[in-house]
Each structure stands twice: as structure tokens, then as C-alpha cells.
Write a protein that binds this DNA or RNA. Structure first.
Lengths: 197, 197
DNA sequence: TGTACATCAGTGAACGCGCGTTCACTGATGTAC
DNA sequence: TGTACATCAGTGAACGCGCGTTCACTGATGTAC
């Protein structure tokens, strides 16, 4: 049996090891904090156990919230689209609605789109529905047909649009203290100008 | 004294109340999970208390990690910039380095740029350093001077660049399952084409 | 070279906390007679 | 209309967990003599 051999490092060694270990632990994607089941029960003035009458687990409750909110998001965006208008304007309306919903529901936006492997990795692939994607691609095609080349085709263009909108929303959410020189609507318009190239 | 008055709702009422409460709790920005002090100690094969010899609290440890990593990020990006090259290419190098670092260190990127009010709101304003911003703005100006109008001026353009790069990195991190049609480098290039307008 | 001792990095037990989940229960409601 | 009863939504105590932090300690190292 080996003696206890209490380790003893020199000076700052453990400090560096701790920093290295903490960094290593923080490198891989981090989950976002979910409201606790007890907090939800508390908010309803009900005992924690009462939740189990309606949801099998905390995960089921959270999943129900996210499913509903993903639909709410979709609805908010699709509702902004008036098929009677010009493609350019419809695209603009969709983009604005996306940004407004995201900035207006920061926590939910985070849970939907910035939560890498939350909830058994099921939500790692949450994304705008096929309908929304189809609608957007279609508008981008119309846009291109109207004389604008849209260089690499509508699918990469849609991807680029999603990415840019996401960046807009995400940074506004997380850097509220930043002295933004352009307001949200202005940024969306600026971004869309890229599609008129 | 009022009798206990145990509440009893009809059918799905509490279910709806729970969903509403959970949604309400999830609307505001959510913190990102930080590696626990005990986990860090464990990773170093050391007792939790040993950490306190080197850091005053878990917050101090995390702050030290984030400060160091913010510098590492800056270094990675600035190092990619070769002042001997053309402005367009330098801009491209910076942008690529940003994206590569972010995608390569997803958890750290999250903690730096997607952590709204972590750590006593101190990090809510973490952002690329003045030096990096100055460098970028300068390159965008040179870019504009070289014949490209850069419509709204270099500062909004830098903001737009940051936002777009962030969107790129963030979605790649959080939607790894998405069937991306463009690879990371291609997306960065696509994005930069917008600045040639 | 050998011994006594001060230093101080790391230990281990303990604390109070909020968490998700379980269990046996209770008591208001609505129905059957 | 009045009473007995089954239903079942919500309760309250308890569990084991990992957490951040505290406290008095211990024992290896390096120095002074």
C-alpha cells in the first residue's frame, strides 16, 4: 500500500493547473440554464409534486414550453408575411419579424437557437420549419428572378440570411451594453441590402 | 384565520398555468452553465478547498479563465493579420481567424459572447478589444477608399461585420446537426462579398 | 552533516442550500342512490 | 332534497444529490543553527 503521498506543488503550479482544467472544462458547448421545476411550481403557488400530475418530468415540461414557443415564433414570423406584397417587401417583413421576436423573447430565443445539446440533444436541431424555409427560399428565388443574380443560389442565400439574422438577434441579446450605432430595424435593412447585390 | 382552502382547478387549468409560468420564467435572458468549482478541483485531483488558496471564490476563478481566454481570442485573431498584405486580404484573414477560433472553442465563445448577465453583469459588455475594432475599422476604410463605397461608413460596417461573423459562429456551434450547404470558410467569404458591394 | 522548527499548500469534515423525484396521504368535488 | 361514496388534483415529508463555502487541521518542505 502506497503512503498517502500528499501532493505539494511549487508556488503557482496548482493555480495554472486549475486555470487549465477550468478552461478545458469550459471549451465544449455549455448548456443554458433552464427554469427549475420548483420555481415553476412556486410561480403557480402550488407544491412541486403537483407538477407531476401534468408532466412526467422537468424535461417534459420544458419540452412542452419549447414546442409551444417554437410554434409561436413560427406564427409570429409567418403572420408578418403578406402574400399580396412584393417579394422584396415580403422578405423584409419576414426578416424584421424574426429579429423582433428574438429580441423580444431573449430567453426563449436562447433556448431554441443557442442551446447546443440541451434536453437529450433533441433540440440541437431545432430550426425554422420547412414551411418557413420554403417560403424564404421561394422569395429569394423571386428576388433573383427579378433581375438580382443571388450568386450562389437560393439555398445558400437562405442559409446566409438565417445566419445573419441570428447574429443580429444574438448579439443584441447578449451585448445590450454595447453602443450600437444602428438600431435593430436599420441593421436588418442593412443586412437585406446584401441580397440586392 | 382563513381555512386552508386547498385550491382545486378544473381539468387542464393548472397545466396551462404551469406552461405559462415556465414560459414567463424562460423569457428573460438565461445564464450559461459554468463549470463547478468542485469539478475543476476534481479534474486537478485536488480537494475543493485547495482552490481557495489560489482564488477567492468560484467567480474569481471563472473571471480569471474568461480574462485569459478573451486575450487568447484576441491574440488568435490579431496574429492572423499580416500588415504586409492587401487590406481586402487582411480583412479576410481576420474574419477567418474569428470564425475558426469561435467554432474551435464553442464553450468559451459562448461564455464570452453569449452570456448576457453572467458574473455580476460584468461580462455583459465583453467584446472585441479597442485594438481589434480599430484595426477592423481602419481596414474597412482602406477598403472603401479603394473604390468600394461602404455605404454607411466604417463604424456601422464594422458592427455589421461583427454581427454577421457572430451569427455564423453561433449557429454553427448550436446547430451542428443542420445540413449546412456551405462550409465555414465559404460562409465567411460569402459574408465578406457583401462588403465589396 | 544533523536536528529543531516555522511556513503554508493542501486536507477532510461539516454547513446550509436548492434541486428532481418518490411516496403515502387528504380532502373537495361530482355522482349514484 | 339528502346522504354515502368514489374519484383524483394537489399536499407534505422525505430521499439523495452536487453545489459553494467555512473551519480547524496536518504534514512536507526549506531554513537556521
Amino acid at each position: 500500500m502506497v503512503a498517502q503521498e500528499r501532493q505539494r506543488r511549487e508556488g503557482d503550479q496548482l493555480r495554472h493547473e486549475l486555470l487549465a482544467a477550468a478552461t478545458a472544462l469550459a471549451v465544449s458547448p455549455r448548456p443554458v440554464v433552464i427554469p427549475s421545476l420548483r420555481a415553476v411550481a412556486r410561480a403557480c403557488g402550488v407544491s412541486p409534486t403537483a407538477v407531476y400530475r401534468h408532466f412526467a418530468s422537468q424535461g417534459a415540461l420544458t419540452r412542452a414550453v419549447l414546442t409551444a414557443e417554437l410554434q409561436a415564433f413560427e406564427r409570429a414570423v409567418l403572420t408578418a408575411d403578406d402574400p399580396g406584397r412584393e417579394p422584396v417587401e415580403r422578405l423584409r417583413d419576414l426578416a424584421h419579424a424574426y429579429a423582433v421576436w428574438g429580441v423580444g423573447n431573449p430567453g426563449l430565443y436562447q433556448l431554441l437557437f443557442e442551446s447546443a445539446d440541451q434536453l437529450e440533444r433533441e433540440w440541437a436541431s431545432v430550426e425554422p420549419s420547412a414551411e418557413l424555409v420554403a417560403r424564404t427560399t421561394e422569395l429569394l428565388e423571386a428576388h433573383a428572378a427579378a433581375g438580382r443574380p443571388a450568386a450562389p443560389g437560393p439555398v445558400p442565400a437562405a442559409e446566409h440570411l438565417w445566419t445573419s439574422l441570428h447574429g443580429l438577434v444574438s448579439l443584441r441579446i447578449h451585448k445590450p451594453a454595447h453602443p450600437w450605432v444602428t438600431d435593430l430595424a436599420g441593421s436588418v435593412d442593412h443586412l437585406l441590402r446584401g441580397f440586392d447585390a
